[in-house]
């Protein structure tokens, strides 16, 4: 299976592991992640103002690239995923926005055909659940994560707004827990798993970010977890920066480990 892959800026810098292990795991699962020739940063957060057009252009360009190859657009970073999926949704549901966006695109050199939301946007987790299938992953597990108590941390970006993201139950999700089970680990369910880590407020009000992050890592620890896994570099940063007692790793790293392809890819 070949899919268009949008890594995002952080995966090329501070979150190289998230990217590297995603490639390794996908290779093992028979999925080829192909980047567009060029891509730009998604902007990190979706802008909710209806008149924000230009800031969403990078997302639309990536969507068009996938559309033209007739492939789904896959992301691993929660933030990129959220921004691109919401942009795609806005194109589909807000005619005025779609019109203005296409006007912008028409001005570009080698202007693409107008885009109306045709591309299917998938997070790698969704690709695994819906396209590859958990049963297929289970067959490929080489080193089950036996005995590991793992707390899945969703944060806000993967699940909300649920009407648009359509990934899982926003209040009682199970996609990562199901994956942990498939990989042989023991998921730890704790109530803070869909709470916000504080996100970008870390720059504005470090205390507030600390409070948020600690409430999450403390809740995971109190429920007996050995480690926390996430798909978001900012969540990971906030949790670690604010002194999480538990290790925080990317879900792709665990996936690669269980599939037996981690060591080959350690240290690039």
């Amino acid at each position: 299976m070949k899919v268009t892959y949008f890594p995002g800026c952080t995966l090329r810098t501070k979150a190289k592991e998230l990217d590297r292990y995603a490639h390794a795991a996908c290779n093992a699962l028979g999925v080829e992640l192909v980047e567009p020739d060029t891509w730009q940063c998604c902007g990190g957060v979706f802008s909710y103002a209806k008149d924000e057009i230009a800031s969403k252009l990078p997302s639309v360009r990536a969507l068009i690239d996938a559309r033209d190859k007739n492939e789904p657009l896959v992301t691993v970073c929660s933030a990129c995923h959220n921004v691109i999926k919401q942009t795609n949704h806005q194109i589909k549901t807000d005619a005025d926005f779609a019109f203005r966006m296409n006007n912008y695109l028409a001005q570009e050199k080698d202007a693409p055909a107008p885009y109306n939301g045709e591309t299917k946007v998938l997070h790698l987790l969704e690709l695994i659940r819906d396209e590859i299938g958990f049963d297929k992953v289970a067959e490929k597990v080489q080193k089950p994560l036996t005995g590991k108590k793992i707390a899945a941390y969703y944060g806000c970006l993967l699940l909300r707004p649920s009407k648009t993201m359509q990934m899982d139950d926003p209040e009682n999700p199970k996609i990562i827990e199901d994956l942990i089970r498939v990989l042989g680990g023991e998921p730890v369910i704790y109530p803070a798993r869909n709470e916000c880590c504080g996100g970008y407020i870390a720059l504005e009000d470090a205390e507030s970010a600390k409070k948020r992050s600690n409430s999450i890592s403390d809740s995971a620890a109190a429920h007996g977890a050995d480690m926390i896994i996430t798909a978001c570099p900012l969540c990971r940063y906030n949790l670690i920066k604010n002194g999480s007692k538990l290790p925080v790793v990317y879900f792709t790293e665990l996936l690669a480990e269980a599939l037996g392809v981690k060591e080959d890819n350690d240290g690039e």
């Binding site: 970008y200 870390a202 720059l203 900012l234």
Partner: peptide, 8 residues
């Protein structure tokens, strides 16, 4: 992470 600066 770059994501934080961008978001902020």
């Amino acid at each position: 992470p770059q994501q934080l600066l961008m978001s902020a």
